[in-house]
C-alpha cells in the first residue's frame, strides 16, 4: 500500500502548489498585496533555494560548508554577464533559462574543480577550505576587470518574475525531496552516518561526496542567477561570509532531516526580521532571542500527534 500512499501524497502536493500559485499570483495582480510584502517574496524564495541546496550537503551528506555564498556569487555573475552580453541577441524567454543554465554550470564546474582537493579533508578542515573559497571568490570579483569591481555590475536585464521564482522554488523542493528518498540520497545519508561502514557496504564515498558538492553548488548558482536578474545590480559584498552563515542557520534550524522543514525554516527566518521591524533598535536582539528559543525547542523531543501516526499506519 505504501506506493499508493506515495502517489496520493504526490498528487495532493502538486494540487496544493498549483492552488497556492494561482492564489498568490492573483493577489499580486489585483494589487491587494502591498509592494513591501511583494518585494519580500524574492528574498524568501532565494533563501529557500539556498537553504535547500545547502541542506543536501549539510543535512544529507553531513559535511559542513561555510562558502555557500561563494557559489551563489559565481552563478549570479556568470548568469548576469551572460544576459548582459546577450540582451540584444536572444529574446527574453530563451535568454533567462539559458542564463540559469550558464549560472548553474559555471558554479558546478568550479565546485568540481574544488572538490578534487577538498575531499581529501574532513570535518572542520573542509569548513575552513570552503570558508577560504568564499573569500577568494569575493576578492576576485572585486578585482577582476569584467565584474565591475567594487562599484558593482550594473545593467543586468530584469528577466525574472514572480512566476519564475515560484516554480523554481517548487522545483528545488521537489528535487530535494526526491533525492532524499532516492538511491543516491540513501547513499549520502549512509556516508553521513558512518563513512567506514558505507565504504564497506559498496558505496564509493569520495565520488559520492563530489557529486553532492557539485549538485549543491549548481543549485546555489541558480539562486544567484535569480538574484542578479531581479535586482539587476550586483556587488561582491552581497555574497559575503554573513550570507553563508545565514543560510547555514536556516538549514540547522530546519533540523537537518527534512526538505520541507528546511524550506519552512528558511521562510520564517527570512520574514522574521521584517515582522520584528516595529521593535526598532531592539530588532536584532529579539531576533537572536527568538532564534535561541526556537533552537532549544527544536532539540526537545516532541511526540508526533496521534492522528498523524494513525494515518501512517492506515496507509
Amino acid at each position: 500500500m505504501n506506493h499508493l500512499w506515495r502517489k496520493k501524497k504526490f498528487f495532493l502536493g502538486g494540487l496544493f502548489t498549483l492552488l497556492l500559485f494561482v492564489l498568490m499570483h492573483s493577489l499580486i495582480q489585483s494589487g491587494l498585496v502591498s509592494r513591501h510584502i511583494q518585494s519580500l517574496s524574492v528574498p524568501v524564495g532565494l533563501n529557500m533555494i539556498l537553504a535547500l541546496s545547502l541542506f543536501l550537503l549539510v543535512g544529507m551528506l553531513g559535511e559542513l560548508s561555510l562558502g555557500h555564498a561563494g557559489f551563489m556569487s559565481i552563478g549570479a555573475y556568470a548568469g548576469g554577464l551572460f544576459s548582459k552580453a546577450m540582451v540584444q541577441v536572444i529574446p527574453v524567454w530563451i535568454r533567462f533559462p539559458l542564463a540559469l543554465c550558464v549560472g548553474a554550470l559555471v558554479a558546478a564546474l568550479l565546485a568540481l574543480l574544488l572538490s578534487v582537493p577538498v575531499f581529501r579533508l574532513k570535518g572542520d578542515y573542509l569548513a575552513i577550505v570552503t570558508l577560504a573559497f568564499g573569500e577568494i571568490v569575493r576578492s576576485l570579483v572585486i578585482n577582476l576587470p569584467f565584474t565591475g569591481g567594487a562599484a558593482g555590475l550594473k545593467g543586468i536585464p530584469k528577466d525574472t518574475s514572480f512566476s519564475f521564482l515560484y516554480w523554481i522554488v517548487v522545483f528545488t523542493i521537489w528535487l530535494t525531496m526526491w533525492i532524499y528518498s532516492s538511491k543516491i540520497g540513501l547513499e549520502w545519508r549512509a556516508i553521513r552516518d558512518n563513512a567506514i561502514a558505507a565504504e564497506a557496504c559498496g558505496i564509493p564515498v569520495v565520488s559520492r561526496k563530489r557529486t553532492a558538492f557539485v549538485v549543491t553548488a549548481s543549485l546555489a548558482g541558480v539562486a544567484g542567477v535569480l538574484y542578479s536578474h531581479h535586482y539587476s545590480i550586483l556587488t561582491a559584498e552581497v555574497f559575503g561570509f554573513n550570507r553563508s552563515i545565514e543560510v547555514l542557520v536556516m538549514v540547522v534550524l530546519g533540523g537537518l532531516e527534512s526538505a520541507i522543514a528546511t524550506a519552512v525554516s528558511a521562510f520564517f527566518l527570512t520574514i522574521a526580521p521584517e515582522m520584528l521591524r516595529f521593535l526598532n533598535q531592539y530588532r536584532m536582539l529579539i531576533y537572536s532571542l527568538v532564534l535561541i528559543i526556537v533552537m532549544i525547542g527544536r532539540n526537545t523531543q516532541w511526540e508526533k500527534p496521534k492522528w498523524f501516526q494513525q494515518r501512517r499506519e492506515n496507509a
Binding site: L186, E187, D193, A197, A198
Partner: peptide, 15 residues
C-alpha cells in the same frame, strides 16, 4: 556501525 539516523528499511535498501 549502522547508519543510525536512517530507518531500518533504508539501512537495507542502501546496500
Amino acid at each position: 556501525r549502522l547508519f543510525h539516523r536512517m530507518t531500518v528499511l533504508e539501512n537495507v535498501l542502501v546496500t
